[in-house]
Simulated assay, not measured.
Amino acid sequence: MNVSIIGTTGYGGGELFRLLYHHPVFNIHSVHTTREEIPLNEEFPHLNGITDINLEHIDPEKIAKHSDIVFIAAPSGVSSKLVPAFVDKGIQIVDLSGDLRLESDEYRKWYKHEPVSDDILAKAVYGLTEWNKSNIANATVLSNPGCYPTATLLGLAPVVQEKIIDPNMIIIDAKSGASGAGRSASKKLIFSEINENLRIYKVNEHQHIPEIEQQLRIWNDNVGPISFNTHLLPITRGIMSTIYVKLTETYTTESIIELYREIYKDSPFVKIRPQGNFPEIKEVSGSNFCHIGLHVDERTGRLTIVSVIDNLIKGAAGQAIQNANIMNGLDESKGLEFIPLFP
Rank of each mutant, 00 (worst) to 15 (best):
I93D: 01
P60M: 04
D118C: 10
A73F: 05
I120R: 08
A137D: 05
G90K: 08
G146Q: 09
K133V: 12
V116F: 03
N135K: 15
L102N: 03
G146P: 03
G77A: 05
I91C: 03
V94H: 04
V78P: 05
Y126H: 08
Y111D: 02
V78M: 09
H113V: 10
D99F: 02
L100R: 00
W131C: 08
N135T: 10
R108L: 05
S104R: 14
I91A: 04
P75K: 08
L100M: 03
S80L: 11
G77M: 04
A151S: 06
F86M: 11
Y107C: 00
V87M: 11
A139Q: 00
S117D: 11
A74H: 02
D88M: 05
H66E: 11
S143R: 07
E61D: 12
D99E: 07
G77P: 04
P145E: 07
E106A: 05
K81C: 11
W110E: 05
V141R: 02
A122G: 15
D118L: 12
L100W: 00
A137Y: 04
S134K: 15
A139L: 02
Y148H: 07
S79E: 02
L128R: 02
D95C: 13
K123D: 08
A85Y: 15
I120Q: 05
D105A: 13
G98N: 08
A73K: 01
D118T: 14
P84M: 06
I69D: 00
V83C: 02
H113D: 13
K109I: 10
S97F: 03
E114Q: 11
R101E: 11
P115V: 10
P75Q: 05
L121D: 09
Q92K: 10
D88V: 04
R101V: 14
N135C: 14
I136R: 00
Y107R: 00
V116E: 00
L102Q: 01
S97T: 11
C147R: 05
K133Q: 14
K81A: 15
A139K: 00
S117F: 08
K62R: 15
H66G: 04
T129I: 14
F86L: 10
T140V: 14
D119A: 14
V125C: 02
V83Q: 03
L100S: 03
I63Q: 02
P115Q: 09
K81P: 01
P75A: 06
E61H: 07
P145D: 13
S67F: 09
E130M: 04
C147A: 09
K89N: 12
R108Q: 13
R108M: 11
S134F: 12
R101I: 15
D119E: 14
K123T: 07
K62Y: 10
H66L: 09
D68H: 10
L102G: 01
P75S: 10
T140H: 11
E106S: 05
V87S: 13
H113S: 11
T129F: 06
N144Y: 00
A151P: 00
P84K: 01
D88I: 06
V83G: 00
